[in-house]
């Protein structure tokens, strides 16, 4: 009995302590519980550090050839072996992290910004504007993803910068659709109507009321999309349309190792593994974010 009252008391005390429960704290409380997503988040954090420090922590140069160690197997000296020019694959992967993360983040960032604006405008105003934007998106959707990217590269010419543009364009319609559909439902909520009754302008309603409510779906899709973008960029580089040979881009490394698949599988195995783990980490993080941000999943 006495214990019970003491317990209650402690609970009250705790409630006093967390006086203001902001949406962010609420999200963090739920996200913390998801072990796999937390691991993925830590891994991605680690990748970012690697990307930043790249050249400083790589044991060897990523581009200098070493003709004495051509295609040597993994050993203590070369953890992931060397490639056809004797370059240390482990070092190249470390330096390639920066490229892959840069391409993934920047392209998804562009598609998210443009897609969100288009989605908000199209969902909020409706009418012919909505029709036009959505039909253009339909046209873009009609292309198989990688084919569209290849088409854009064919126009712009190969190179990493153009890969970013291609992958960005190919992500815009999906963002536009996701944001439009949440805009359509949020537009009808009573709190948007009450903001309208107070006298708020369309601009204010879109940015102050609708956008923050769509943010959670944008964040989730953003995270998941990074994985796909990295994969697409790697595929384009593999096809020789993206990063050009000396660059330690993971897809380009796969492509370069293709000829030695039977004699020296490590040349393709390790870059492939890096792509796989990175994409997986982003997808798992996205799943975790979705579960934590979904208001319907209350504990």
């Amino acid at each position: 009995m006495k214990n019970g009252t003491v317990d209650l008391h402690i609970k009250d005390g705790r409630q006093e302590a967390e006086k203001v429960r902001t949406p962010f704290l609420e999200f963090w409380r739920k996200f913390k519980k998801q072990r796999i997503a937390m691991i993925a988040a830590f891994f991605i954090g680690f990748l970012f550090i690697v990307a930043l420090l790249g050249p400083f922590i790589a044991p060897y140069s990523a581009v200098e050839p070493d003709y004495e160690n051509i295609l040597s197997s993994p050993s203590m000296q070369h953890l992931a072996g060397t490639d056809a020019f004797g370059r240390d694959i482990f070092s190249r992967i470390i330096e390639g992290t920066r490229i892959s993360l840069f391409v993934g983040l920047s392209s998804v960032f562009f598609s998210a910004v443009l897609g969100t604006i288009l989605g908000l405008v199209s969902g909020y105003y409706g009418g012919w504007l909505d029709n036009m934007i959505m039909r253009i998106c339909d046209v873009l959707f009609a292309f198989p993803g990688i084919l569209l990217a290849i088409g854009i590269i064919a126009i712009l010419g190969p190179g990493l910068g153009n890969v970013v543009i291609a992958v960005a364009i190919f992500g815009i319609p999906t963002f536009a659709r996701i944001v439009r559909s949440s805009t359509l439902s949020i537009k009808e909520t009573l709190y948007v109507e009450s903001a309208r009754s107070v006298g708020a302008s369309a601009k204010r309603i879109i940015f102050k009321h609708i956008f923050p409510s769509t943010l959670s779906s944008i964040i989730v899709y953003f995270t998941m999309r990074i994985g796909t973008a990295i994969l697409t960029a790697a595929s384009l580089s593999f096809l020789g349309l993206g990063a050009q040979p000396p660059s330690p881009e993971w897809g380009a490394m796969l492509s370069a190792g293709r000829d030695f698949l039977n004699t020296a599988p490590h040349v393709t195995f390790f870059p492939g593994l890096s792509i796989f783990i990175t994409v997986l980490a982003f997808n798992l993080l996205g799943d975790g974010l979705r579960d934590a941000l979904d208001p319907k999943m209350k504990d």
């Binding site: 009754s197 107070v198 204010r204 102050k208 409510s213």
Partner: peptide
């Protein structure tokens, strides 16, 4: 010309603090 709505649960933006919600008409005007 202001309005009070029927459903007090749905008429407040869940992502805004009470202070922000009440200040909104003042900001808007």
């Amino acid at each position: 010309l202001q309005m009070i709505f029927q459903d007090p649960y749905a008429s407040l933006n869940p992502r805004m603090t009470i202070g922000e919600t009440i200040a909104e008409p003042l900001i808007v005007h």
